[in-house]
Amino acid sequence: MRLSDLCFFYHSGSKAHRVVDVVTVVKEWNEDGGGVVDVKVVGEMRRPMDLKEMKGDVGLRGFALFRQLRLSVVPVSEDVWERICGLGGGFEGDGQDDQV
């Protein structure tokens, strides 16, 4: 993860598994700092994307998240990013609000 990358923030608690926010990397991974990446919320998904719904979408077949749910970080290709944002109606701060 690199500075300014956009990332999905995914809830994986016992009650819900879903993409809820988009965040940006504000501080890159650093071994000296305990190996953490600092992120800042960019905006909420207009419609949170539930894991079950994403798994049922043919356009998301093969997404790494479906194989290893416990990973804290999985790569998201550009086509998967666009598909999830499209299904979820985008996210606050994506510029779509300005097009009304």
Rank of each mutant, 00 (worst) to 15 (best):
R2G: 09
L3P: 08
S4M: 14
S4G: 09
C7Q: 05
F8G: 03
F8H: 00
F9H: 11
G13I: 02
K15S: 10
R18Y: 04
V19D: 04
T24M: 15
T24K: 11
V25P: 06
V26Y: 05
E28S: 11
W29V: 12
W29P: 05
N30P: 12
G35R: 05
V39M: 13
K40D: 06
V41D: 14
M45N: 07
R46E: 07
R47L: 01
P48N: 09
P48M: 03
M49T: 04
M49S: 09
D50H: 14
D50C: 09
D50A: 12
E53P: 10
D57Q: 11
V58T: 04
G59H: 15
L60N: 00
G62N: 03
G62Q: 05
F63C: 14
F66T: 10
R67I: 09
R67N: 15
R67L: 13
R70G: 02
L71A: 14
V74R: 02
V76C: 11
E78Q: 08
D79W: 04
V80T: 04
V80P: 02
V80G: 02
E82H: 05
I84S: 00
I84C: 03
L87K: 02
L87Q: 03
G88N: 04
G90I: 02
G95H: 02
D98R: 03
D98Y: 01
Q99S: 10
